[in-house]
Design a protein around this nucleic acid. Sequence first.
DNA 1: TCGTGCGCACGTT
DNA 2: AACGTGCGCACGA
Length: 376
Amino acid sequence: MSEPKYREWILETIDSLRSRKARPDLERICRMVRRRHGSDPDKTRAELEKLIQEQTVLKVSYKGSISYRNAAKVQRKCRKRAEPTTDSSSSGESLGEQSKHASFNNNGDSALSLTDQEECEDKEPEERGVSPCPDPLPQTSPSTLEKEDKILPLPSGNSFVSCGATGHSAGSVKASASKDKRLVDVAGGSGSSLQRDAASSANRRAEGDKALGAGHEDSEDDEREEKTCPSVSSAVSSSPKLPAAPKPKLKVGAKGSGARCSDSPEESSVDLGDRLVAAVRSLSERHRGSAATRGHAPPGLKEILGYLSTQRGMPGEKLTRNRVKVVLEREIERGRLRRTRLGHITLPARGMGAAKPSARLLKSALQDGHLAKKVT
DNA sequence: TCGTGCGCACGTT
DNA sequence: AACGTGCGCACGA
């Protein structure tokens, strides 16, 4: 049960950030809620998780980072906005309506995909097809299913998704923007479907809800988690559809990796991949070195970008954020890099190397692949 | 230092 | 072409 008060604050904050053209990520949300309402960030985070589970808030991975969306506002894929619910300003109350129509899809978002934190990794979902999760949500809409399958086609902007909400596993959403359009997947356990209704249900759930959320709140902390949602992964990974993806990334070899795509354009990417890894390594060491900074967070995309730009890469090469992201995702997928829950990039733990990517990675790989293609 | 506003590039539909 | 998203930068407090 998320507290109505928090729900309102959080949704309001998300809307505010969006209107400011700032990414509604955990950090900003917590900060803004704290500033505006004095709420404790941990509490905010916990409430956010609940909202995610309730699907009042969607957790998505967009352009390589985690973003949170107001479920009530997402969706309407139709461009024509029939009308912006003006009112609802932010609160989520209006969810009902909106949701009902659409399901959220990605609004145009290019990205909605599920996200997750790191948990999935270990889990290795194998079962993909089956979701271990019991699927609390009963509601599944028929339609959803169909689309689900399609999900994989990949979301565009997003890089990857994973499940679990921070901490609790369940709640993330994936909306893939795939071409199909709407597909949001909620991890919440539903293994599959639910998303669509989610919104609607969300409303109702909002208050009483909990049905799903019940999962547990576990540790709030996220980090650890283990549990994650297999379901999600299942969606993704399992999907039979993935075009080529499933292949393990064996290729990781350093440059050799380029092999992935024969297209020439990729070449630069490949090389960029190496530079990227080197950049992360360098930045990581730098951080580490500097004062034992344990506190210092691992480098983020921004930092890496900055580093790369100072390193001068291929002549004439244009280092756009997007391009770096794509390559970054690819390296993550290959296991040469690892993304932390907060979206920072680090080197993989020694033990695990590139070798095994984890479901999440796989997924990202998929997407990545698509992205890569597109990119060029 | 932090919160905002917003131009602009990108990706999707 | 219309949109949604969010980075990066400028500004004000």
